[in-house]
Simulated scan of single mutants.
Amino acid sequence: MITFLQNLLYNFFISLGVILGGCVFGGIAATFSGHPPLKSMLDLCDKIKLWAVIVALGGTLPSFKILEVGVFNGDIRGLLKQVFYILSALSGAQMGYRIIYYLGGVNKL
């Protein structure tokens, strides 16, 4: 059985992987199509950051259902766990975002 901390790590690294993988492969596709790869990678970082969080959480509907039960039925424990899962996924996406920007030589975030 997967524990709470394991889920936090999974969410973090899944969202990190979506950002890094999407940007790297998008840069490769940009190279093949004659566009500047670094600019394409930086543009993709902005576009797929939210999608990385959604993918890490397994879609939005289960997350909203847990949040609804937590708010309206008083299940505070489930609500807090979901908030931590969202924060973990956001942290992974932000780290991937920063890695791509630093690799691109952009120091201003």
Rank of each mutant, 00 (worst) to 15 (best):
I14E: 02
D43W: 05
R77Q: 15
G21Q: 07
S88C: 07
D43C: 14
L9E: 04
I99H: 02
G34W: 09
K65G: 11
F12K: 02
A29M: 14
L80W: 06
G17V: 03
I54T: 00
V71M: 13
Y101N: 11
C23V: 08
I99L: 14
G92A: 04
N73I: 08
T3E: 12
G26M: 06
Y85N: 01
F84D: 00
D43Q: 12
G26F: 08
I76G: 01
L9R: 04
G17E: 06
S91Q: 05
K81H: 14
I2D: 09
P36R: 08
D75Y: 06
I54G: 00
I54D: 00
S33W: 11
A52K: 07
G92T: 02
K108I: 13
L9V: 09
I99M: 09
K47Q: 14
I14V: 07
N11V: 01
I54W: 03
G27A: 12
L57H: 00
G21A: 05
L44C: 01
N11K: 04
L87R: 00
I14L: 06
G26L: 11
Y101G: 06
I86Y: 03
L9A: 08
P36F: 10
G78D: 02
K49F: 12
S40V: 14
I86N: 06
L44Q: 00
N107R: 13
V69D: 02
F13A: 01
L79A: 02
V69P: 15
L103Y: 08
L8N: 02
I86H: 04
G26S: 05
